[in-house]
Amino acid sequence: MFGFRKTRALLGAAALTIGVALVASGCTAGGGAPEGGNGGGEGGGEAITVTFLPKNLGNPYFDTSSKGGKAAVEAFGGAFEEVGPTEASPTSQVQYIQTAAQQGVNGLVISANDPSALCDALEEARSAGTKIVTFDSDTDPECRDLFINQATAEGIAKAQVDLIAEQIGDAGEIAILSASANATNQNAWIELMKTELEANHPDITLVDTVYGDDDDQKSFDQTAALLQSHPNLKGIISPTTVGIAAAARYLSTSEFKGKVALTGLGTPNQMREYVEDGTVTAFALWNPEDLGYLAAFAAQALVAGDITGEEGDSFEAGDLGEFEVGADGTVLLGDPFVFNADNIGDFDF
Protein backbone atom coordinates (compact mmCIF):
# COMPACT_ATOMS: atom_id res chain seq x y z
CA MET A 1 0.00 0.00 0.00
CA PHE A 2 1.30 3.39 -0.96
CA GLY A 3 1.06 6.40 1.37
CA PHE A 4 -0.01 8.98 -1.21
CA ARG A 5 -3.70 9.52 -1.70
CA LYS A 6 -4.16 12.34 -4.17
CA THR A 7 -7.60 13.12 -2.83
CA ARG A 8 -5.83 14.24 0.35
CA ALA A 9 -2.50 15.36 -1.06
CA LEU A 10 -4.12 17.78 -3.48
CA LEU A 11 -6.11 19.51 -0.79
CA GLY A 12 -3.15 21.80 -0.14
CA ALA A 13 -1.00 22.40 2.90
CA ALA A 14 -2.05 25.58 4.59
CA ALA A 15 0.37 26.60 7.33
CA LEU A 16 -0.39 25.02 10.67
CA THR A 17 -0.74 27.41 13.58
CA ILE A 18 1.98 26.49 16.05
CA GLY A 19 1.29 26.36 19.73
CA VAL A 20 -2.44 25.69 19.83
CA ALA A 21 -3.60 26.34 23.39
CA LEU A 22 -4.04 23.17 25.43
CA VAL A 23 -7.64 22.24 25.98
CA ALA A 24 -7.56 21.80 29.75
CA SER A 25 -11.12 20.56 30.02
CA GLY A 26 -11.51 16.98 28.85
CA CYS A 27 -8.01 15.85 29.93
CA THR A 28 -8.09 12.55 31.77
CA ALA A 29 -5.32 10.81 33.62
CA GLY A 30 -6.32 7.35 32.47
CA GLY A 31 -5.02 5.66 29.34
CA GLY A 32 -8.35 4.13 28.32
CA ALA A 33 -11.31 5.82 26.74
CA PRO A 34 -12.58 8.68 28.94
CA GLU A 35 -15.40 7.63 31.22
CA GLY A 36 -18.76 7.71 29.53
CA GLY A 37 -17.20 8.22 26.09
CA ASN A 38 -16.72 5.99 23.09
CA GLY A 39 -13.13 6.92 22.28
CA GLY A 40 -14.27 9.62 19.90
CA GLY A 41 -15.52 12.41 22.11
CA GLU A 42 -19.13 11.70 21.17
CA GLY A 43 -22.14 10.74 23.21
CA GLY A 44 -21.50 13.23 25.99
CA GLY A 45 -18.12 11.81 27.03
CA GLU A 46 -14.94 13.81 27.46
CA ALA A 47 -12.87 14.35 24.34
CA ILE A 48 -9.72 12.29 23.83
CA THR A 49 -6.71 14.59 24.05
CA VAL A 50 -3.85 14.02 21.61
CA THR A 51 -0.59 15.97 21.69
CA PHE A 52 1.87 15.93 18.78
CA LEU A 53 5.55 16.34 19.67
CA PRO A 54 7.71 16.65 16.53
CA LYS A 55 11.50 16.73 16.54
CA ASN A 56 11.32 20.50 16.29
CA LEU A 57 8.84 23.24 15.51
CA GLY A 58 9.10 25.38 12.40
CA ASN A 59 10.01 22.37 10.25
CA PRO A 60 7.79 22.24 7.12
CA TYR A 61 7.77 18.44 7.17
CA PHE A 62 6.36 18.36 10.70
CA ASP A 63 4.01 21.25 9.98
CA THR A 64 2.48 18.97 7.35
CA SER A 65 2.36 15.84 9.53
CA SER A 66 0.74 17.84 12.34
CA LYS A 67 -1.81 19.17 9.87
CA GLY A 68 -2.81 15.58 9.16
CA GLY A 69 -2.85 14.76 12.85
CA LYS A 70 -5.08 17.71 13.62
CA ALA A 71 -7.50 16.70 10.85
CA ALA A 72 -7.71 13.18 12.26
CA VAL A 73 -8.27 14.33 15.84
CA GLU A 74 -11.01 16.68 14.70
CA ALA A 75 -12.56 13.82 12.69
CA PHE A 76 -12.93 11.61 15.77
CA GLY A 77 -13.99 14.49 18.02
CA GLY A 78 -10.85 14.84 20.10
CA ALA A 79 -8.74 17.77 21.26
CA PHE A 80 -5.43 18.41 19.45
CA GLU A 81 -2.26 20.22 20.51
CA GLU A 82 1.22 20.53 19.01
CA VAL A 83 4.21 21.32 21.24
CA GLY A 84 7.95 20.97 20.84
CA PRO A 85 11.44 22.43 20.92
CA THR A 86 12.82 24.87 18.38
CA GLU A 87 15.95 22.76 17.91
CA ALA A 88 16.19 19.00 17.39
CA SER A 89 18.44 17.52 20.06
CA PRO A 90 18.42 14.26 22.03
CA THR A 91 17.00 15.66 25.28
CA SER A 92 15.06 18.69 24.03
CA GLN A 93 11.77 16.77 23.99
CA VAL A 94 11.93 15.48 27.58
CA GLN A 95 10.22 18.45 29.24
CA TYR A 96 7.32 18.26 26.78
CA ILE A 97 6.82 14.56 27.50
CA GLN A 98 6.78 15.27 31.23
CA THR A 99 4.31 18.12 30.83
CA ALA A 100 1.97 16.00 28.72
CA ALA A 101 1.98 13.31 31.41
CA GLN A 102 1.34 15.84 34.18
CA GLN A 103 -1.59 17.28 32.23
CA GLY A 104 -3.13 13.84 31.73
CA VAL A 105 -2.92 13.83 27.94
CA ASN A 106 -4.50 10.63 26.64
CA GLY A 107 -2.27 10.13 23.61
CA LEU A 108 1.21 11.47 22.87
CA VAL A 109 2.43 11.23 19.26
CA ILE A 110 6.18 11.84 19.01
CA SER A 111 8.97 11.79 16.42
CA ALA A 112 11.96 10.91 18.56
CA ASN A 113 15.25 12.78 18.44
CA ASP A 114 17.00 9.82 20.08
CA PRO A 115 16.03 6.14 20.45
CA SER A 116 16.97 5.78 24.12
CA ALA A 117 17.39 9.22 25.73
CA LEU A 118 13.62 9.76 25.93
CA CYS A 119 12.73 6.37 27.38
CA ASP A 120 12.67 7.30 31.06
CA ALA A 121 10.33 10.21 30.42
CA LEU A 122 8.13 8.11 28.13
CA GLU A 123 7.90 5.33 30.70
CA GLU A 124 6.77 7.87 33.30
CA ALA A 125 4.12 9.12 30.89
CA ARG A 126 2.92 5.58 30.20
CA SER A 127 2.75 4.88 33.92
CA ALA A 128 0.51 7.95 34.23
CA GLY A 129 -1.84 6.47 31.61
CA THR A 130 -0.68 8.25 28.45
CA LYS A 131 -0.54 6.10 25.32
CA ILE A 132 2.67 6.64 23.35
CA VAL A 133 2.76 6.53 19.55
CA THR A 134 6.01 7.25 17.75
CA PHE A 135 6.06 8.24 14.10
CA ASP A 136 8.73 9.11 11.53
CA SER A 137 11.57 8.35 14.00
CA ASP A 138 11.19 5.58 16.57
CA THR A 139 12.36 5.01 20.11
CA ASP A 140 13.45 1.64 21.47
CA PRO A 141 10.32 -0.53 21.04
CA GLU A 142 9.85 -1.08 24.77
CA CYS A 143 9.46 2.68 25.31
CA ARG A 144 6.24 3.14 23.34
CA ASP A 145 2.98 1.43 22.41
CA LEU A 146 3.10 1.77 18.62
CA PHE A 147 5.43 3.03 15.90
CA ILE A 148 3.88 4.45 12.72
CA ASN A 149 6.50 3.79 10.05
CA GLN A 150 6.34 5.90 6.91
CA ALA A 151 7.87 3.09 4.84
CA THR A 152 10.27 0.26 5.43
CA ALA A 153 13.80 1.41 6.17
CA GLU A 154 15.08 -0.87 3.43
CA GLY A 155 12.71 0.64 0.87
CA ILE A 156 13.62 4.22 1.82
CA ALA A 157 17.35 3.51 1.66
CA LYS A 158 17.16 1.70 -1.65
CA ALA A 159 15.02 4.41 -3.26
CA GLN A 160 17.60 7.09 -2.45
CA VAL A 161 20.57 5.01 -3.59
CA ASP A 162 18.79 4.11 -6.82
CA LEU A 163 18.07 7.79 -7.49
CA ILE A 164 21.64 8.98 -6.96
CA ALA A 165 23.03 6.05 -8.96
CA GLU A 166 20.81 6.92 -11.90
CA GLN A 167 21.76 10.60 -11.73
CA ILE A 168 25.55 10.10 -11.62
CA GLY A 169 25.83 7.20 -14.03
CA ASP A 170 26.30 4.67 -11.21
CA ALA A 171 29.90 5.76 -10.60
CA GLY A 172 31.80 8.38 -8.59
CA GLU A 173 32.06 9.95 -5.15
CA ILE A 174 28.98 10.80 -3.11
CA ALA A 175 28.32 12.18 0.38
CA ILE A 176 25.38 12.14 2.79
CA LEU A 177 23.96 15.24 4.47
CA SER A 178 21.93 13.93 7.41
CA ALA A 179 19.93 15.50 10.25
CA SER A 180 21.20 14.96 13.81
CA ALA A 181 23.80 12.30 14.58
CA ASN A 182 21.37 10.68 17.05
CA ALA A 183 18.27 10.50 14.83
CA THR A 184 17.03 6.91 14.83
CA ASN A 185 15.57 6.90 11.34
CA GLN A 186 18.47 8.76 9.72
CA ASN A 187 21.05 6.37 11.12
CA ALA A 188 19.06 3.30 10.11
CA TRP A 189 18.70 4.58 6.55
CA ILE A 190 22.38 5.51 6.31
CA GLU A 191 23.51 2.03 7.38
CA LEU A 192 21.17 0.43 4.87
CA MET A 193 22.35 2.81 2.14
CA LYS A 194 25.92 1.74 2.83
CA THR A 195 24.88 -1.90 2.54
CA GLU A 196 23.02 -1.22 -0.71
CA LEU A 197 25.99 0.65 -2.17
CA GLU A 198 28.43 -2.11 -1.30
CA ALA A 199 26.17 -4.86 -2.63
CA ASN A 200 24.91 -3.33 -5.86
CA HIS A 201 26.90 -0.19 -6.71
CA PRO A 202 30.62 -1.02 -6.43
CA ASP A 203 31.68 1.99 -8.50
CA ILE A 204 30.05 4.52 -6.16
CA THR A 205 32.16 5.61 -3.19
CA LEU A 206 30.65 7.20 -0.08
CA VAL A 207 33.36 9.65 0.99
CA ASP A 208 31.68 11.54 3.84
CA THR A 209 28.62 11.81 6.09
CA VAL A 210 27.88 15.18 7.72
CA TYR A 211 25.08 16.45 9.97
CA GLY A 212 23.03 19.61 9.63
CA ASP A 213 20.89 18.96 12.74
CA ASP A 214 17.74 19.77 10.74
CA ASP A 215 18.80 23.41 10.84
CA ASP A 216 18.56 25.26 7.53
CA GLN A 217 21.67 27.41 7.90
CA LYS A 218 23.84 24.63 9.29
CA SER A 219 22.73 22.30 6.49
CA PHE A 220 23.48 25.04 3.94
CA ASP A 221 26.96 25.51 5.43
CA GLN A 222 27.62 21.77 5.55
CA THR A 223 26.79 21.54 1.85
CA ALA A 224 29.34 24.23 1.08
CA ALA A 225 31.93 22.46 3.23
CA LEU A 226 31.34 19.14 1.52
CA LEU A 227 31.94 20.63 -1.90
CA GLN A 228 35.10 22.34 -0.75
CA SER A 229 36.44 19.23 0.97
CA HIS A 230 35.66 16.84 -1.87
CA PRO A 231 36.39 18.47 -5.24
CA ASN A 232 35.50 15.25 -7.11
CA LEU A 233 32.09 14.91 -5.49
CA LYS A 234 29.41 13.87 -7.98
CA GLY A 235 26.37 13.58 -5.77
CA ILE A 236 24.78 14.27 -2.38
CA ILE A 237 22.03 12.30 -0.66
CA SER A 238 20.12 14.20 2.03
CA PRO A 239 17.56 11.97 3.78
CA THR A 240 15.95 14.91 5.58
CA THR A 241 13.55 17.54 4.28
CA VAL A 242 15.42 20.45 5.87
CA GLY A 243 18.78 19.23 4.60
CA ILE A 244 17.78 18.59 0.99
CA ALA A 245 16.11 22.00 0.67
CA ALA A 246 19.13 23.79 2.15
CA ALA A 247 21.53 21.86 -0.08
CA ALA A 248 19.41 22.66 -3.14
CA ARG A 249 19.40 26.33 -2.21
CA TYR A 250 23.18 26.34 -2.07
CA LEU A 251 23.64 24.39 -5.31
CA SER A 252 21.10 26.49 -7.22
CA THR A 253 23.30 29.60 -7.17
CA SER A 254 26.70 27.91 -7.19
CA GLU A 255 29.12 26.74 -9.86
CA PHE A 256 28.13 23.17 -8.95
CA LYS A 257 24.58 23.46 -10.28
CA GLY A 258 24.11 20.79 -12.92
CA LYS A 259 27.45 19.21 -12.03
CA VAL A 260 26.72 17.76 -8.58
CA ALA A 261 23.53 15.73 -8.30
CA LEU A 262 21.29 16.04 -5.25
CA THR A 263 18.56 13.70 -4.10
CA GLY A 264 17.04 12.47 -0.85
CA LEU A 265 13.78 13.07 1.00
CA GLY A 266 11.88 16.32 0.51
CA THR A 267 8.42 17.82 0.17
CA PRO A 268 7.10 19.03 -3.20
CA ASN A 269 6.50 22.59 -2.04
CA GLN A 270 10.06 22.89 -0.70
CA MET A 271 11.67 21.40 -3.75
CA ARG A 272 9.48 22.61 -6.60
CA GLU A 273 11.62 25.59 -7.64
CA TYR A 274 14.80 23.49 -7.58
CA VAL A 275 13.23 20.80 -9.76
CA GLU A 276 11.88 23.39 -12.16
CA ASP A 277 15.22 25.22 -12.45
CA GLY A 278 17.18 21.99 -12.99
CA THR A 279 19.09 21.94 -9.69
CA VAL A 280 17.40 18.67 -8.69
CA THR A 281 16.26 15.92 -11.04
CA ALA A 282 14.27 13.71 -8.68
CA PHE A 283 13.75 13.02 -4.97
CA ALA A 284 11.50 10.85 -2.83
CA LEU A 285 9.12 10.98 0.12
CA TRP A 286 5.83 9.65 1.45
CA ASN A 287 2.90 11.85 2.37
CA PRO A 288 3.67 13.31 5.83
CA GLU A 289 0.10 14.52 6.14
CA ASP A 290 -1.11 10.93 5.83
CA LEU A 291 1.57 9.86 8.32
CA GLY A 292 0.31 12.28 10.96
CA TYR A 293 -3.29 11.37 10.18
CA LEU A 294 -2.57 7.66 10.67
CA ALA A 295 -0.60 8.28 13.87
CA ALA A 296 -3.48 10.21 15.42
CA PHE A 297 -5.98 7.46 14.64
CA ALA A 298 -3.57 4.90 16.08
CA ALA A 299 -3.44 6.91 19.30
CA GLN A 300 -7.23 7.08 19.37
CA ALA A 301 -7.51 3.30 18.92
CA LEU A 302 -5.09 2.72 21.81
CA VAL A 303 -6.86 5.17 24.11
CA ALA A 304 -10.28 3.74 23.27
CA GLY A 305 -9.03 0.22 23.99
CA ASP A 306 -9.74 -0.99 20.45
CA ILE A 307 -6.14 -2.23 20.20
CA THR A 308 -3.27 -2.85 22.60
CA GLY A 309 -0.41 -2.64 20.11
CA GLU A 310 0.01 -6.40 19.77
CA GLU A 311 0.95 -7.91 16.42
CA GLY A 312 -2.21 -8.71 14.47
CA ASP A 313 -4.31 -5.93 16.01
CA SER A 314 -6.22 -3.91 13.43
CA PHE A 315 -7.93 -0.52 13.49
CA GLU A 316 -9.69 1.92 11.21
CA ALA A 317 -7.87 5.12 10.30
CA GLY A 318 -10.61 7.31 8.87
CA ASP A 319 -10.15 8.09 5.17
CA LEU A 320 -7.05 5.89 4.97
CA GLY A 321 -8.92 2.69 5.77
CA GLU A 322 -7.87 -0.28 7.89
CA PHE A 323 -4.34 -0.94 9.15
CA GLU A 324 -2.79 -3.90 10.93
CA VAL A 325 -0.12 -3.88 13.60
CA GLY A 326 3.00 -5.78 12.57
CA ALA A 327 6.00 -7.10 14.45
CA ASP A 328 7.45 -4.95 17.26
CA GLY A 329 4.31 -2.84 17.42
CA THR A 330 4.89 -1.27 13.98
CA VAL A 331 2.24 0.00 11.57
CA LEU A 332 3.37 0.64 7.99
CA LEU A 333 1.97 3.57 5.99
CA GLY A 334 3.33 2.59 2.57
CA ASP A 335 6.18 2.93 0.08
CA PRO A 336 8.20 6.02 -0.90
CA PHE A 337 7.23 7.94 -4.03
CA VAL A 338 9.56 9.62 -6.52
CA PHE A 339 8.89 13.25 -7.44
CA ASN A 340 10.27 14.76 -10.65
CA ALA A 341 9.48 17.47 -13.18
CA ASP A 342 6.71 15.35 -14.72
CA ASN A 343 4.62 14.97 -11.57
CA ILE A 344 5.64 17.55 -8.94
CA GLY A 345 2.94 19.95 -10.11
CA ASP A 346 0.28 17.43 -9.05
CA PHE A 347 1.09 17.80 -5.34
CA ASP A 348 0.72 20.62 -2.84
CA PHE A 349 2.26 19.99 0.56
Rank of each mutant, 00 (worst) to 15 (best):
244 I>L: 12
287 N>G: 05
61 Y>A: 05
32 G>Q: 06
189 W>L: 12
252 S>M: 07
291 L>K: 10
257 K>L: 02
83 V>M: 14
42 E>I: 08
167 Q>F: 04
344 I>V: 15
221 D>M: 07
20 V>T: 12
76 F>I: 08
90 P>D: 12
75 A>T: 10
54 P>W: 11
262 L>R: 11
99 T>L: 13
246 A>V: 07
286 W>S: 05
176 I>W: 11
304 A>G: 15
29 A>C: 02
242 V>I: 15
31 G>V: 02
283 F>N: 08
289 E>A: 04
231 P>V: 13
165 A>W: 02
280 V>K: 02
156 I>F: 10
78 G>C: 09
302 L>M: 14
324 E>C: 03
182 N>K: 07
139 T>P: 07
282 A>R: 15
210 V>D: 11
58 G>N: 10
279 T>P: 06
41 G>T: 03
141 P>N: 11
46 E>I: 00
119 C>K: 07
277 D>R: 09
299 A>V: 14
340 N>Q: 11
325 V>N: 02
236 I>H: 08
163 L>S: 14
240 T>A: 13
197 L>I: 15
203 D>Y: 03
172 G>P: 14
207 V>Y: 14
224 A>D: 07
120 D>Q: 14
181 A>P: 10
239 P>A: 07
206 L>E: 04
267 T>Y: 00
237 I>V: 15
25 S>R: 05
257 K>P: 04
86 T>E: 11
42 E>Q: 12
78 G>V: 04
278 G>W: 03
111 S>R: 07
278 G>H: 08
220 F>I: 01
62 F>L: 04
29 A>G: 13
16 L>D: 00
93 Q>W: 07
128 A>E: 06
34 P>E: 02
97 I>M: 03
70 K>F: 06
344 I>A: 14
57 L>T: 12
302 L>F: 01
321 G>F: 04
96 Y>N: 08
